[in-house]
Design a protein around this nucleic acid. Structure first.
Lengths: 214, 214
DNA sequence: AGGGCTATTATCCACTTGGATAATAAATAG
DNA sequence: CTATTTATTATCCAAGTGGATAATAGCCCT
């Protein structure tokens, strides 16, 4: 990412004092170069056009555009720029939205400077890092998103086709039309599907198919 | 976690040479104490009963019990033990399963010792860390898991109740029974739900409800 | 060649469904 | 106090649904 030795950094933070504090703190770290700091996301996004950086420290609660929206935009336009969310917000939704927007790290503001320095180095290499205090939400997300052990209901290819149409809300007749078979055939397929999925009606079949991603 | 100064570590890795290499490498790091190493997950799990550690380096491809299963078991039994998956596997499902199992980090084996040392310190504090080469999968997961902007279909409380039963596959009559109202009432609710969700039948309503988590 | 699975088609029947339409009472909001 | 919304009930009707049961043809494997 960085062609020089120094890691170039922008700070986006609406509170002046905080910006100054960070800037001063990093004067002791020779390989961190705080190129500029902004009180709004818009300012930062404009500046990136002329001078991209390696890493951005991004607050969440900003005037006008939020840190999450900004992260989304910057990540889309400059996929190589690493964004560290640096905030006091511990709201679960904000954590997840931030990471979904492409941030590489989520840190709470009381992080000490040495750790923040290490964090900047870490994300500059492309890693993802999550503050100890918010790992639970993140792990819960991983748990929910875990590739399910794809329960196998032994549906045939044809049945999967039918189930797919069923889930889209088509009636047996419509399914038959789409597959150019007789309505009786479609109906027979549906009946077999209901049996195989151990449900008694197509609504439950559709829900089960959606849940298990069949 | 660690009451002493040193971070205590177990290594689980079926290849003897690799274990030896790691052990030797960490002799230079005074605050890392490789307490023991195991060629199988079972050995590690047994040892934990007598002597827990702060951090475990866990391979994935192990004989008998896989690293993922072991991680799941250890994380459940000792939530404070931090597990670093250290493997050559770059398979997306294994990455996600590992993190879902409670691992705090996923690193690829060619990581250099200094970084691995930093990583051990980082996860010992409770952070989550993801290797740069597998961030894409993880970010994609965050993106998919992002709290959807909860499209609002202006369903009334009663309608949500009805929709809930509908999704479970109950017929209008059954819904009416459950809510102790007349079948006509249940039917009227369903009709209104279909209109509000802009769908023409209950299957689509159920699917939409499931997708949008109504 | 024969056994098992799949896809296809079919019929009967009681029950369910969705659309259209509307009336009433209760609660809520302005 | 009045307008709006919600919950309740109802009816008609054409269409769709699910269960049970079964026959036929094609395919793959042994």
């Amino acid at each position: 990412m960085s062609t020089q030795n120094k890691i170039s950094v922008y700070i986006v933070e609406d509170y002046l004092l905080t910006r100054i504090t960070y800037k001063k703190s990093f004067q002791n770290y020779s390989d961190i170069n705080i190129v500029n700091d902004f009180e709004s996301a818009e300012g930062c996004i404009n500046a990136l056009e002329k001078q991209p950086v390696d890493v951005i420290l991004m607050d969440l609660g900003l005037p006008y555009m939020t840190g999450i929206e900004a992260t989304k935009i910057i990540h889309r336009k400059y996929p190589n720029i690493k964004i560290i969310i640096l905030t006091s917000h511990e709201n679960d939704d904000e954590v997840l939205s931030s990471l979904a927007s492409g941030a590489n790290a989520y840190a709470l503001k009381d992080i000490d400077i040495k750790k923040l320095y290490n964090l900047i180095c870490t994300v500059n290499e492309g890693s993802i890092w999550i503050d100890p205090r918010i790992t639970k939400v993140v792990q819960k997300t991983f748990y929910k998103a875990e590739p399910k052990e794809k329960e196998d209901f032994h549906l045939t290819l044809r049945e999967k086709e039918v189930l797919d149409l069923l889930v889209q809300g088509f009636s047996n007749t419509e399914i038959a039309d789409k597959l150019t078979v007789s309505p009786c055939t479609a109906k027979a397929h549906v009946c077999k599907i209901l049996n195989k999925l151990s449900v008694t009606d197509r609504v439950q079949a559709a829900v089960k198919a959606t849940k298990y991603d069949l």
